[in-house]
Design a protein around this nucleic acid. Structure first.
Lengths: 175, 175
DNA sequence: GTCTATAATTTGATAGAC
DNA sequence: GTCTATCAAATTATAGAC
């Protein structure tokens, strides 16, 4: 695996646990076994790393979503895949959505990062709206907004409480 | 107003915008017009300030909730007050819930702060469960967990998107 | 790509005067 | 309660060797 990818992997895991400002270049480099100065070769400034994290997270999420739903025609089944993608994060590794964490800190982050987070939420709302519309759910856009809010919030509350049942309660509504 | 209260007010507003780690003693002192060293007289260490913030936030929220619902008997009306309390934060000042922000960063914060955040969520879930139970809503606890997750998440998504309609969509479900 | 070395700044925190 | 003075450590970032 190339270094840039390794940096992104470690940074994403750490920041999804502790936030953007809590993690330093030294923390990331330390776990890689290299020096922090070397990180600047791949990401000149911290903001570049943050932007790359959000962009990659957004792309990975929707690539995975597309791949897993490509064979399906039932919109309700696709929504379930969407929910499962959120569940697997907290279930497999106890991690919150990167954009939920950055979203909570957004007003103190470089503006480009906030814009990336906003784009992620908007894309998810648009995707989910279409699914609900296809499933003839009333007020599909409103339901999509509520579902996104619930899934993101559920990850945070479940993580803090150490209680996955909070997520399951949310998942039941979004379905 | 005494200095400790003033410090808490400023720190709360700043941290609800940018997070715990983004705000320094100098930031807070600067806005108060005093020196950062003076803050240590009121809160010896930063963790003491963080703990006090969560404790006060928790107490203020439930005191206000108690005061505004004391004359009411209809549980649905009480739930509406609960939702309004969340709405007023983002509507009046664009602020996210302190515990949503700290919850997102929790794994990187002192453990006592994480425990305070957890206690806040648990208290809210318990309170809301009782309201739904009184209103004969099916699965009151599950609905309470989903509603808390949704309201907290909606504050974050609405804040990042600059779109209050996300909160209104969530409010409609929780009602 | 990674290293050493280093600079500039920020941060949490303390000691002691007033 | 607030100040000045100060500190040790951490942080982002750069320059230049290998």
């Amino acid at each position: 695996m190339d270094s840039a990818t390794q940096i992104l992997d470690i940074a994403e895991r750490m920041m999804r646990r502790e936030g953007y400002n809590a993690i330093s270049f030294r923390d990331i480099a330390g776990e890689m076994g290299i020096k922090s100065a070397s990180l600047h070769y791949h990401f000149p400034k911290k903001v570049n790393l943050g932007e790359a994290l959000v962009a990659r997270y957004h792309k990975n999420f929707h690539d995975t979503l597309g791949a897993r739903t490509s064979g399906l025609s039932d919109p309700s089944a696709k929504v379930q895949i969407f929910i499962d993608l959120h569940r697997s994060a907290i279930q497999d590794s106890g991690l919150i959505c990167l954009c939920a964490v950055f979203g909570a800190e957004a007003k103190g982050l470089p503006e480009t990062i906030g814009q990336g987070v906003k784009a992620f939420f908007n894309a998810n709302i648009a995707w989910l709206s279409q699914m609900y519309r296809d499933a003839n759910v009333p007020n599909p856009e409103q339901k999509a907004k509520a579902s996104i809010a619930m899934l993101e919030g559920a990850l945070i509350v479940a993580s803090v409480s150490g209680d996955i049942s909070v997520f399951e309660a949310a998942a039941k509504f979004a379905a």
